[in-house]
């Protein structure tokens, strides 16, 4: 565990806490894409199948359980919570996310390291995570104004990916550890998707103004 990897995991955790904080304090999920949250729930459940087959560390197990349970809880809140669900921007959140699931499933069946159930699921989860933010970015762009907590949520998610890339570079030089190329390529694609958002986030931060995305 190096400082970049730890920073990546922590910013990932912070992003989820920020999202839960927003939902809990405002009792609202406006600006949050249910589609993206559903994709993350699918990502974590399919990636962490090794929870039952391999033990890596207490840290690893705890984080996996936290990611699976928090993503399911968030989906439940947006769909079922009697107050929260009223603020869901259903008409803005129309991204056809099951197409992404289908495309990633096909890709995982074709491109994987080993043809086993767990390995194909793992590759699928990596591909799906790379594009899971798309419905959220589309929703933000459509709604124009982004509230602070939602902006911070997306910012921390993007920071998590950027730290993971630094972690891979660090591991390559310090441990001669080669990150799987499936992870590398997907991770770079995933981080690149945030480039536009980061640009406007920093401008609003510099000008001390509200985050607005161009239509």
């Amino acid at each position: 565990m190096n400082v970049f990897r730890f920073a990546g995991d922590m910013t990932h955790l912070i992003s989820i806490l920020v999202l839960l904080l927003k939902i809990y304090t405002t009792k609202s999920c406006s600006g949050i894409s249910l589609k993206t949250q559903e994709l993350y729930a699918v990502v974590f459940v399919t990636r962490y199948l090794d929870l039952v087959t391999d033990f890596i560390s207490v840290y690893n197990t705890v984080m996996k359980v936290v990611f699976i349970s928090s993503s399911l809880a968030i989906v439940w809140c947006i769909r079922r919570h009697k107050v929260v669900r009223r603020s869901y921007d259903k008409e803005l959140d129309t991204f056809r996310h099951w197409l992404l699931v289908g495309a990633c499933a096909v890709l995982a069946l074709v491109v994987h390291e080993k043809f086993s159930f767990q390995e194909v699921c793992w590759a699928f989860s990596i591909y799906l995570e790379a594009v899971a933010i798309l419905p959220q970015l589309v929703l933000l762009q459509r709604s124009g104004n982004v509230d602070n907590l939602t902006g911070q949520y997306v910012f921390f998610l993007g920071a998590y990916r950027a730290f993971y890339i630094l972690n891979w570079i660090y591991r390559y030089y310090s441990e001669q550890h080669f990150t799987r190329w499936i992870s590398c390529v997907s991770g770079i694609v995933q981080t690149a998707l945030y480039a536009d958002f980061f640009y406007y986030y920093f401008i609003s931060w510099k000008n001390n103004s509200k985050l607005q995305l161009p239509a």
């Binding site: 090794d50 391999d54 890596i56 990611f67 972690n167 080669f178 990150t179 992870s183």
Partner: peptide, 10 residues
């Protein structure tokens, strides 16, 4: 690294 190597990243 082989594909049977443990995946230690999240």
């Amino acid at each position: 690294s082989s594909s049977s190597e443990l995946k230690d990243e999240l």
